[in-house]
């Protein structure tokens, strides 16, 4: 089974994000970028499937500007076999990404597409669901455990409010990862070296017949309000009193 993994380049989780002075977005110049952590989990899961003999080939796909190739290299260094880079400088929104991924899936015919449940930059949590709808494939979102069965189905444990839910899906399907699915490995030095030699195909939205133009307009981006200074309470009793009578939360 071929596995396709979508990987997104985002501002590194450790960077303190700054809003651009003109309020049009956040500052990305000279800012450390990394693979979206949920996409790392997606890549790791694919590599584990391959190590377990369940996957035959892993294709890492990223969409966006020239530097996204670095993010694909990271996936290759973790163990993906080859990359596809859909190059565009247009601001990509979830629907455009889902359409572009659908076009790639049509070409590649994987048995499984793994995505992060969301990207830590826009927190949209939409792409996987949209992709599954566009493909007409089953979806298993927020996965915390994946078991591929021999009869063309898979069991996916999902993290839902109040507990875990296990669903059975038919392959091919779309899965999105939650935090507890696995702990991504450190790329090994030999694999970093090998990643250099693995192929990355470059495509454009035009070649895929997709118009990626944004459908949503960003009106304004602002910093969240600064936190107000706190106060010190003298005793537990005072704290309980304040929670009860001032904050009215208990």
């Amino acid at each position: 089974m071929k596995v396709l993994v979508a990987v997104k380049r985002v501002i590194d989780a450790n960077v303190k994000v700054r809003v651009k002075a003109d309020g049009t977005g956040v500052e990305t110049q000279n800012v450390k970028m990394s693979m979206n952590p949920f996409c790392e989990i997606a890549t790791e899961e694919a590599v584990r499937l391959k190590e377990a003999g369940k996957a035959t080939e892993i294709v890492a796909v990223s969409l966006g500007n020239a530097q996204c190739a670095e993010t694909i290299r990271t996936a290759l260094a973790m163990g993906a076999d080859r990359g596809i880079h859909v190059q565009t400088d247009v601001e990509l929104q979830p629907l455009a990404v889902a359409k572009l991924l659908k076009a790639v899936v049509d070409k590649e015919q994987p048995g499984l597409v793994i995505l992060g449940k969301q990207a830590i930059d826009d927190d949209a949590n939409q792409t996987g669901q949209m992709l599954s709808a566009l493909l007409g494939w089953p979806q298993a979102t927020y996965a915390s455990k994946l078991v591929i069965n021999d009869n063309g189905t898979a069991n996916v444990t999902r993290e839902v409010d109040g507990g875990l839910e296990t669903v059975e899906v038919k392959t091919p399907f779309v899965m999105t990862t939650d935090l507890r699915l696995n702990e991504p490995r450190y790329a090994s030095l030999p694999n970093i070296m090998k990643a250099k030699k693995k192929p990355i195909d470059a495509l454009t939205p035009e070649q895929l017949g997709v118009d990626p133009a944004p459908r949503l307009k960003t009106l304004k981006v602002t910093e969240p309000p600064k936190r107000q200074a706190g106060i010190k309470v003298g005793s537990v009793a005072e704290l309980v009193d304040k929670l009860k009578n001032e904050a009215k939360v208990i």
Binding site: E70, R73, A77, Y186, L189, I192, M193, A195, K196
Partner: peptide, 14 residues
Amino acid sequence: ADATGDTVEAILEE
């Protein structure tokens, strides 16, 4: 020959 800029960058990051 293998120690190109992008590889070195990936090594240092990891």
